[in-house]
Simulated scan of single mutants.
Amino acid sequence: MTVDTVEARRVRWEDPETAPLREELAREYVTRYGEGAREELTRYDPALFTPPDGVLLLLFEGGAAVAGGAFMRHDERTAEFKRIWTHSDHRRRGLGRRVVAELERAAARSGYRRVYLTTGPRQPEAVGLYLATGYTALFDVGADPLTTGHLPFEKHLPGDD
């Protein structure tokens, strides 16, 4: 199947369809950062990822969730992207790019004009995705990411500014 056969749907954090996202993100975080990283998934109230200020969306293929992500309000003009994920069996197909594009459209429709996000220093795939989709690194990309901590990015969305 191609990325074109994938359907985007808004969901709630508590919905059963989010189980693959929650399980795989927990596994990824623990594998890369240790057991304490599991807490990252409970750091934010799920209500932050609901309209009007936020969104959680999943991409479905053949009825199964294969990728997803969310945003919440960072400030009046800025959405903060969180939980961008692609199922381990579906990577390298452009689904991450599709998630980012869907989130950007939803954020722009919600009135946001800027996206802010961070990723961890042990997630080079995420760094590559954000740079490839037009995000500006707000850190020295030449520095050792393990000495930098969280890696922030931003992107300005088209608008009526």
Rank of each mutant, 00 (worst) to 15 (best):
M1A: 14
T2R: 15
V3C: 01
D4I: 08
T5C: 14
V6M: 02
E7I: 13
A8G: 00
A8F: 09
R10N: 09
R12N: 01
W13A: 13
E14V: 13
E14C: 13
E14N: 11
P16E: 12
E17S: 13
T18E: 05
T18N: 08
A19N: 00
L21F: 05
E24W: 10
A26C: 06
A26V: 10
R27N: 08
E28V: 09
E28Q: 14
Y33C: 10
Y33L: 14
G34F: 06
E35M: 07
G36F: 04
G36N: 06
G36P: 02
G36C: 09
A37H: 05
A37T: 11
E39L: 15
L41K: 05
T42V: 11
R43L: 14
R43S: 13
D45E: 12
P46I: 01
P46F: 04
P46H: 06
A47N: 06
A47Q: 12
L48H: 06
F49W: 07
T50M: 13
P52A: 07
D53I: 03
G54I: 06
V55D: 15
L57D: 03
L58G: 00
F60G: 00
E61T: 03
E61A: 14
G62N: 04
G63C: 06
A64L: 14
A64V: 11
A64D: 05
A67K: 07
A67H: 00
A70F: 04
A70K: 08
A70E: 01
H74D: 00
E76L: 15
E76N: 03
R77D: 14
R77Q: 14
E80M: 11
F81P: 09
I84K: 07
T86I: 08
T86F: 06
S88K: 11
D89H: 14
H90T: 05
G96H: 08
R97T: 15
R98S: 03
V99T: 00
V100I: 10
V100T: 09
V100N: 03
A101E: 13
A101I: 03
E104M: 09
R105F: 10
R109C: 08
S110D: 05
G111P: 13
Y112A: 01
R113S: 15
R114G: 01
V115T: 01
L117V: 00
T118I: 02
G120V: 05
P121A: 09
P121Q: 06
P121F: 13
Q123F: 00
Q123L: 12
P124C: 05
E125P: 05
E125R: 12
G128F: 10
L129C: 09
Y130W: 02
L131F: 02
A132D: 07
A132W: 04
A132M: 04
A132V: 03
A132F: 04
T133P: 08
T133W: 05
G134V: 09
G134R: 03
G134Q: 01
T136R: 15
T136Q: 13
T136P: 01
L138D: 12
V141H: 11
V141Y: 06
G142A: 10
D144H: 01
L146Y: 07
T147H: 11
G149P: 01
G149Y: 10
H150C: 15
H150Y: 12
P152D: 00
P152F: 07
P152A: 00
F153I: 04
F153R: 00
H156S: 14
H156G: 14
L157R: 02
P158S: 10
P158R: 11
P158I: 05
